[in-house]
Nucleic acid binder design. Structure first.
Lengths: 225, 225
DNA sequence: CATCCACCAAGAGAATTTTCATGAGATTGT
DNA sequence: ACAATCTCATGAAAATTCTCTTGGTGGATG
């Protein structure tokens, strides 16, 4: 379970991150909005804990931005702002929960558990993704096909991960671009096609069953059939 | 969006259910635990709003029971119990959110929106159309016939979708043309015949049962027989 | 410095959609 | 029943759109 904590008050984020670590979570910390935004968009967190008031980008901006990139990561706001209007604004910006400082640590941890429980409930996937005779070990950046290990580059792993997390589904170019490159995109270049080619070269050449299917004019579909 | 509200205080549940209705939700109300439990297990709700203290079964029991039946329905606790321990217990029993009475209506509605937003986000559009041994997945631009996936092009999908949405019915050329091509660009030749051929080639050749029947001089009919 | 990787761009190549030519089958009137 | 006429199926090719391949550049890494 990977958590991103974005808060500029180190008096709070330091001990909090330590406690979350003790609870067994992986924790990344950012202490300004810009750093938080980048981390949130570039990594796949299971939960974002955001402060509202932040230098450079507010928590709400991060939340909106994450949501607009189709990431369903749960978001917990952690803030001193405590009018009902603030809460409504935060929740309607896409937050899943809202906790007012100062808060009791136990309640925070319970809410964190509640939010994370949901994502594991709905994704009972083990961290090793398997499709057909392909097995991806994202932590160690390796895929096995027919038992043999295949080394992949960073971008290749990212793409394959995205594919394997959504098998048998049409993934549009736009969705893939958004997942792999954080900034917005215009198909001004061919990166994706090129990347797909590299991945195919490693994954499916010499193994007759095709796994990456191109859907003309739309995107790609990954899976058997 | 279907909501179950379980609360024994009708002074609260009556106006609340009315407000939720006004907001456009379908609402069922139970005013004791047993009734709530039955409704929760027998129907598919998108959200449960539970009071903690209830005659017959507590909200926590309902929550545990729902969870043990592998229903991932979000649960919002609504209660007067307001120690941190209570909150932690509620959340750890499987609740997704916890709101203390008395609460502000706007905040409740915002939290309801937040919880429902999540379930629509993660719901893949599964309006799959089935006719005979054909199953169409328009979102992913695939049809399965006898379990095997067949890739279709954009126009083929559009035509097949139209067919499968109106099985066993005569669809005139004009109707089909209107559906597939905008009014401004009316193709002048026999595109439709050509397209039908392409579709037949993929769908029914090699599978003896004919699905696309031509109605001479009128149009086509899709279905068995 | 050598290597690996991400990115770019352009021509080759492939898939899709439309059009055309043609023949087979259906329909109608006589 | 027969011919004239209309409609559809079919294969092939043109037009269009999109993808793949390739070679190259620059930056980061070791």
């Amino acid at each position: 379970m990977k958590i991103l904590l974005v808060d500029d008050e180190t008096e709070l984020s330091d001990p909090l991150s330590r406690i979350l670590l003790q609870e067994g979570y992986q924790v990344d910390v950012a202490n300004n909005g810009a750093a938080g935004m980048n981390l949130a968009l570039q990594n796949q967190y299971d939960l974002l804990i955001l402060d509202w008031m932040l230098p450079h980008h507010s928590g709400i901006e991060i939340c909106r931005s994450v949501r607009s990139h189709f990431l369903a990561t749960p978001v917990l706001f952690l803030t001193a702002k405590d009018t009902v209007d603030d809460r409504v604004d935060g929740l309607d910006a896409g937050a899943d929960d809202y906790l007012v400082k100062p808060f009791e640590l136990r309640e925070l941890l319970a809410r964190v558990r509640a939010l994370l429980r949901r994502s594991t409930l709905e994704m009972p996937n083990s961290d090793r993704l398997k499709v057909a005779d392909l097995e991806l070990d994202p932590d160690n950046q390796v895929v096995y096909r027919q038992g043999k290990a295949i080394d992949l580059s960073e971008k290749e792993i990212q793409l394959l991960t995205y594919f394997m997390e959504h098998p048998e589904r049409l993934l549009t170019h736009e969705e893939i671009y958004r997942y792999l490159w954080q900034a917005d995109e215009q198909p001004s270049s061919n990166v994706l096609a090129a990347l797909v080619r590299l991945l195919r070269r490693k994954i499916e050449i010499k193994h007759e069953t095709q796994l990456i299917h191109t859907v003309y004019g739309k995107g790609y579909r990954f899976g058997i059939n």
